[in-house]
Design a protein around this nucleic acid. Sequence first.
DNA 1: TATTACCGACAGGCAGTCGGTCTATAAAGT
DNA 2: ACTTTATAGACCGACTGCCTGTCGGTAATA
Lengths: 208, 208
Amino acid sequence: MRVVKDAEERRNEILDAANELFAQKGFDGTSTNDILEKVGIARGTLYYHFKSKEDIMDALIERYSVRLIGAAQEIAVDKSTPVVERIIRVIMALNISDGSSQEIMEHIHKPQNALMHQKIQKVLINGVTPILADIIREGITQGLFNTPFPYECMEMVMIYANTIFDDDMVPMTNEELAHRAQALVYNIERLLGAESGSLMQVMQMFGS
Amino acid sequence: MRVVKDAEERRNEILDAANELFAQKGFDGTSTNDILEKVGIARGTLYYHFKSKEDIMDALIERYSVRLIGAAQEIAVDKSTPVVERIIRVIMALNISDGSSQEIMEHIHKPQNALMHQKIQKVLINGVTPILADIIREGITQGLFNTPFPYECMEMVMIYANTIFDDDMVPMTNEELAHRAQALVYNIERLLGAESGSLMQVMQMFGS
DNA sequence: TATTACCGACAGGCAGTCGGTCTATAAAGT
DNA sequence: ACTTTATAGACCGACTGCCTGTCGGTAATA
């Protein structure tokens, strides 16, 4: 029973299957056999569309990051919402993420998926930091913030938050987590030269 | 030609070989065959001493982290050197590292070694941060620093510096690197509530 | 003589390759 | 208009070579 489909359609079928399997069992724990059985194709077909197993992962990350950074960008350019609120919205967009990309983030935080996590972190850091830095610069012209290093500040915050909250790099109880969050807001205010408590106030409007 | 050795000696021979090979070819790129051929032992012998390939990596990391954190601790408790200088010495101990551990850090920063890097980062962050935080608290009592979150500050700095300077997470030219370093010192001063330029001065005494 | 260290053949599973097959569509012939 | 032929894109599955981990058995040491 041979079924011929448009190349792009097949590619997406494979990516969808891989996405689910990687989430369940990790990259190393998933065999190419698992993937091609799930899609219902032969070995050769898989390697017709992708040149290697890692190539599948890269394509998956690409698809994911395009969506995510696009969403962040969209929020960032909306000059009608105040600067501080916009920052928070951008950050929230990273964690929640929409529909199909959701699964990927839920199960990535296992040591199994170290490489995948590293690659995602890389596109996240280099993709989102410039977006955030632009908002900060806007805040500086408005007199809200004051720092000679807006980009580096956001880079630091991005990397730290990503590592602390998304990895199991630092084992934490819920208490410790809350304490970390509180400290982070305080530290961001200091880094950005914002008035003490100015970020905290806006944060509380969103809960958590 | 069967040679019998003390278990611990063999274990270390295996770890030394693995250390070198992982550095050259990465964890995934190194086969257990490579290791046992380099040591000159049979398959069974390798698995007599280690229960899996990953077990070898874990033992390697353990050996490495014990040395490194020990060295950091030693510097930290020497109350005769001034606080700021001590901090810098601890951080420098992480990058240079002595002899046998040196190689491991030199070649880890390839995407191949993602898992290994993640594991090392984990022990580094959770092992060194408390040491640094203690020095900061000392600095607070001396009136040098002023922050309600000494631990979280150092955690942020550790994670950021490790990611930025040790990974190829963020591609950088030498100029950009220098700019990052400058920004980092500035930001650390802000985080710790130190007098502006107080860290910078001491840094310059060390060069780089 | 018992324990500890060691051996190497073997099983099972894996990623990636390759020659060949099917099918849809376009071109050529009638 | 209607069939035949050509071509390229999508697909197939057997096969290769490598890899990790196991196990029954063997030599050395105390």
